[in-house]
Nucleic acid binder design. Structure first.
Lengths: 187, 187
DNA sequence: GTCTATAGGAAGATAGAC
DNA sequence: GTCTATCTTCCTATAGAC
């Protein structure tokens, strides 16, 4: 087996960058290949199913990222709820580069692509919500109240990213993240 | 002048439906034409600039809609703030079909398309925020507090639409709209 | 103003050499 | 495992008849 020119992780990072920025329809295989320095045909060697399989691989990668850096940290019983929240807020900041980058779950939620990736998008969002629900419970909220807050967190992140993009300023995202911290800490 | 087969309003409604569902890159001219029963070449007759001009026309149409059904109603001094809010909540429900339909401002906010329509998206979002800021002021909030609430409204709508789409349920959108009403009425 | 037909190019996908 | 070259299909856009 000849060693790959580009490692899996670097490859997936590049592919994700294109998909989150341009969406499924907007991402061409040339761009996807170019993002990691490979040629189109080499991408097909790694992902025989073409663009759909590439996108599924990226979604799986994202799902693992959320499990590791959102869900597991939010449910880590060896830390206080406040410490966990602080950690995860940092992860979120780096994931979206302080509001500069889009969310791939949003980028793939056009009618034409959500159809192809419904289950994967749903699972990632659900994992995110489950993590924050657990955090809310550990903060002392009832399960219902904690879940409601968890939805508000996901909605605030997604919404503020769109508004930031639309207005050309990261301020809405930054303010939304601060509001999330306040929402838990003020109680 | 031969009368048009499809009136401007019906044409724009069809074009908007495609663009909001599939985004800029995802909408082909065949689909755009088909949405109103015209042929591709007829679309070029009405919009010589092609897809870009079509999208600009739809964005202008959307901007006028927001001015008329969001901004003007929110600033209509002949009604009480509560009446205005109720009216506009209804408009929002119908615009997004209770959470089933996407927002075209979101659909066009991929990196590849926001580049082309930056100003138009920004103006529409700003008009929306200005309307809700005025409402908040008339509810008795300071200008700063009113503007913060206005941002929260736009963020909650955009975010809940994405989460609704991702989870395959309109519940998040419906809950978000109810929370918006509560946010103003509870004070 | 609308249509059919088509040019010209970019897209997704494959073949086969190295 | 990666590459160049190529196939086919779809796309944007235009020409010209009605």
């Amino acid at each position: 087996m000849r060693p790959p020119k580009v490692e899996d992780q670097a490859l997936l990072d590049g592919l994700m960058a294109v998909l989150r920025a341009k969406g499924y329809e907007g991402s061409s295989l040339n761009e996807l290949a170019g993002s990691s320095g490979l040629q189109k045909a080499s991408l097909y060697h790694r992902f025989p199913g073409g663009k759909k399989e590439i996108t599924l691989a990226v979604l799986h990668y994202v799902h693992e990222w959320i499990r590791k850096y959102i869900y597991e940290r939010l449910t880590d019983q060896s830390l206080s709820p406040a410490e966990r929240l602080g950690d995860v807020i940092q992860s979120i900041h780096s994931l979206y580069q302080g509001g500069e980058k889009s969310c791939i779950l949003k980028a793939l939620s056009m009618d034409s692509s959500v159809e192809l990736f419904r289950e994967e998008i749903k699972e990632s969002m659900q994992r995110w919500i489950d993590g924050f629900t657990a955090l809310g419970v550990d903060y002392g909220f009832t399960r219902d109240a904690a879940q409601e807050k968890a939805f508000q967190v996901l909605i605030a992140i997604q919404g503020s990213l769109i508004v930031s993009k639309g207005l050309g300023s990261t301020a809405p995202f930054v303010a939304a993240v601060e509001a999330i911290e306040k929402m838990y800490r003020e109680v």
